[in-house]
Amino acid sequence: MTDSALRIRGLRKAFAKVVAVDGVDLEVARGEVFGLLGPNGAGKTTTFEIIEGLTLADAGDIEILGLTWARQGREIRSRIGVQLQSTSLFNKITPREALDLYGSYYPKRRDTQELLELVQLVDKADAYHITLSGGQQQRLALALALVNDPELVFLDEPTTGLDPQARRSLWDVVRRMKGEGRTVVLTTHYMDEAEALCDRLAIMDHGQVIATGTPASLISDLAIPSVVELTFDGDAPDPTAFAAKLGQAVERRTDLWEIPTPDPKALLNHLLEAAESAAVPFLQVHIRRATLEDVFLHRTGRSLRE
């Protein structure tokens, strides 16, 4: 038995018009919470589907808990837990029934009541699925992914479409999974989620992994750990002329300018002088630590949400 929960080499998958996964290598250690971060269409979900045995790869090797699909498919299915991006159940099945039913598919299963408590659905245990809120349905999907007491859990965008409170309560469940010693692999396009939950991350774009590391190391690897922002009243003006004068790159966002810098203190004096002499009509100045969003921006030239 290896100490990796998941090992992927040279994974490739092309569809008719697009190469969805283009040579992905990943390694996830046991007990880790690992995140795949990237914008929509980066290839996260296709990568997941291949790992979960739903889609066949064109090329590449996958080892899950030391097992391979070609020879041990049934055992893999028994030992992993999966939450798909959207989990569709029967309209009139109750959470209790769904957990009992899906539990019956596995050789090893967790107690239904215990799962209901874990995802805080005891009150709704006997309500029809169709009457549950989005967050409740998502928590049920999470409980279903845990029904077989899996060693390795895959969560595909577990919090997309949820309100902030529902997201927090899902994060708690993920942390408890880690506490129970499970390995969790999740995809997200929320950088705050990746920072809050993940021990390590892979940033994906256009079907490729463009960076891997802990959230802190990814940020500190940027030579520019801070960002100075000038906010405007309304749309920010074109910064080209000002950037030339300042001798520093200035990025325009909708209503602000962003100036990445390794030394915000030194930049600030210089910046304010230049802004005053050029009569830049800014409202406020902020200094903030760089985030994963900046890492992504720096690596791809695009924002995560674009």
């Binding site: 959207s86 989990t87 598919y105 050789p107």
Partner: peptide, 13 residues
Amino acid sequence: EKGKFRRLAVTPL
């Protein structure tokens, strides 16, 4: 279409 089959396909059933 709704992915009910996919949810079943990731179980050993």
